[in-house]
């Protein structure tokens, strides 16, 4: 059982997202994260879904996804060289004159940027893979996280290969 990152190319039409996510819940697969947006083709969208399961389960979910008429291509990026990123916005408690400096130091180690400075809080923006964001969250917890907002994972293959060329 490990996380698989599925890249799903779909028709850019109303209702497609609910067809895809409905299929996951109906067949008993838990979605770990989800990201949807436009892609290189104007009339298509890309859905990136991280799902945990053994290889047989993942193969079944991919086959079921392929049966949806509006799904054009499903690829599992998990076993390929790839870049994966998430973005998180973290609102941390930071009263003036207390731990601000420490938090800013941590931010710089993680190459996170401070995107808002308030009297009692800071907002950090961080980009990275799941592990990096998890690590930063863990470190910041001691200062008090007021709010934590995180996108789903998106992924792309390294080199000139594209997911369309994957089997």
């Amino acid at each position: 059982m490990k996380p698989h990152t599925l890249s799903i190319l779909v028709e850019n039409k109303a209702g497609v997202l609910s067809r895809v996510t409905g299929l996951f819940s109906r067949r008993g697969f838990n979605i770990e994260s989800l990201a949807v947006g436009p892609c290189e083709e104007p009339d298509m969208s890309r859905i990136t879904i991280v799902v945990i399961g053994d290889d047989e389960k993942i193969e079944q979910v991919m086959k079921q996804l392929n049966k949806l008429i509006d799904v054009i291509k499903v690829s599992d990026l998990t076993n390929s060289e790839r870049v994966e990123r998430e973005l998180a916005l973290i609102k941390v408690t930071a009263e003036l004159g207390t731990s601000r400096a420490e938090i800013m130091q941590i931010a710089s180690i993680f190459r996170a940027s401070i995107v808002d400075v308030g009297a009692k809080s800071l907002i950090l923006q961080v980009i990275g893979d799941t592990d990096k964001i998890d690590a930063l969250e863990k470190l910041l917890r001691q200062y008090g996280i007021k709010e934590f907002v995180r996108t789903g994972t998106i992924g792309i293959l390294r080199g000139s290969k594209t997911v369309s060329s994957l089997k």
Partner: peptide, 13 residues
């Protein structure tokens, strides 16, 4: 179309 999504091969509105 929402109701029949899981029991149709495809549907249209």
């Amino acid at each position: 179309t929402g109701i029949t999504m899981p029991v149709t091969k495809h549907n249209y509105l």
